[in-house]
Each structure stands twice: as structure tokens, then as C-alpha cells.
Amino acid sequence: MIIKRHLIDPSVGSKGYFHINLSVENSFWDKNDVSDIAVFEKYLAEKRDEHQSYVAHGGYLEQRALYRKNARFQSGITRDVHMGIDLWAPAGSSVHAVMDGVVHSFAHNDDAGNYGPTIILEHDWNGQKIYSLYGHLSISDMAGWEVGVRFRESEKIATLGTPQENGGYSPHLHFQVMTNMRDYRGDFPGVAAQEELASYENMILDPNPFIFTSI
């Protein structure tokens, strides 16, 4: 695996990327609370040492115990399948545009367990429109956002937020790619129930090929 595009500060990313498993299949989370930031940060530090790399990533279509502990994802139907990819790095790390695009919309999704500050870019990609979502950012970045403003590939668009502003999570970027925004602005579902996945087929793309090249 090699990095095709750095979404996280290249100086941090130069220390290497490694995959992290937050799925219900990881028995570590049977006895440890993944939603506890201190527990998660300790686990993350141990994995960084183990892999001798720094930026943890993963999560596309991963079924996570994390969401089963949050009432936000338990309203009538259990939503626990993660539809984007997460990249963990320290708060304040810069976040960069995946490709040339313009600001479609942005919002501060500030209820507990949500994205916090979120920006969505619109792109022309292989003759079709696609949209990239960047969630869990810093509130201070929002002052520089404006609908229609263009960002070039790899240009800095934001920084990672703290748990106090990013929805209550260990600092990370939620990155997601959509082909249709439906009627959403500044937001788009990032977690779904198993029985909802078919309705997102061809609408939410695998984000990994936009970031990594397999070797």
C-alpha cells in the first residue's frame, strides 16, 4: 500500500499509515470501551508502537460496537455500520482536499456523537459529479469556508478538532465519498443499519482507492 493522496498533514503522514480494527470482530472491544477516549488513545499508542507507524486508518463498511453505546444510533433501528474511512492523528493536524473541487456546503453538526464541524466538496470526476465529506474538524476553520470557493488537490481546507468540538471522539478525520447528496447540506449519513446498506449502493463509494494504491 502506498499513499496516493495525503488527506492528513503530510509531515505526520510521512511517519507511516497502518490499519486499525474497531469492528465487533475484534475481541479487545468485548472487554474494553471503545467510546472511552482515554482507553482508545492508549490502544492507539500501543498500535503505533507495534506497527512503527503513526496515522491509523480504517472503517469502511466496518460494523462497530462503538455505535451500540450511543443513543444517537439506536433510535428505532440499530445503525452500526461505518460508511466512510477514519484517519486518526492529533488535533490540529491539517486536513487536505482529496482533489480539485468547490465547497458544496458546510455545517457545525454539534450534537453529541455527530461530525462536529463538517465541510463537503463537489468534484468533477471521470465525467460525473462526486462529493467528498470531511468531518470532526475544528470550529475555528469554519470562518474561512464559503460555498462555491475552490480548493485545489492537496490544499489545506481545515484542521482536526478536539473531542470538545468534534462530536466527542478521539481526534480523527471522517472521510466519505458520495455520488448523490440527496437533499443534505453540510451533512450526510456516515453510519447505517445493515438493512439500509442496499439503499446506499452506488451512492456511497469505497473511499480507500481515493487515498491509497495497493501494491
Rank of each mutant, 00 (worst) to 15 (best):
H108K: 12
D111F: 11
A112N: 12
A112Y: 15
G113N: 05
G113R: 02
N114V: 04
G116V: 01
G116S: 01
P117A: 08
D124F: 09
N126T: 09
Y131A: 04
S132V: 13
Y134S: 06
H136N: 07
H136K: 10
I139E: 15
I139F: 03
S140G: 09
D141L: 04
D141I: 05
G144K: 11
W145C: 01
E146H: 14
V147T: 15
F151G: 00
F151E: 00
F151A: 00
E153I: 04
S154E: 15
T159M: 07
G161C: 09
G161D: 09
T162M: 14
T162S: 15
P163E: 03
P163W: 03
Q164M: 11
G167A: 10
G168N: 13
G168I: 05
S170F: 14
P171C: 12
L173N: 08
L173S: 08
L173C: 12
H174K: 07
V177W: 00
M181E: 01
R182D: 10
D183W: 04
D187M: 01
G190M: 04
G190N: 04
V191R: 03
L197A: 01
L197I: 06
A198V: 05
A198H: 14
S199D: 09
Y200D: 02
Y200G: 01
E201S: 09
I204S: 05
P207H: 07
P207M: 04
N208D: 06
N208R: 14
P209W: 08
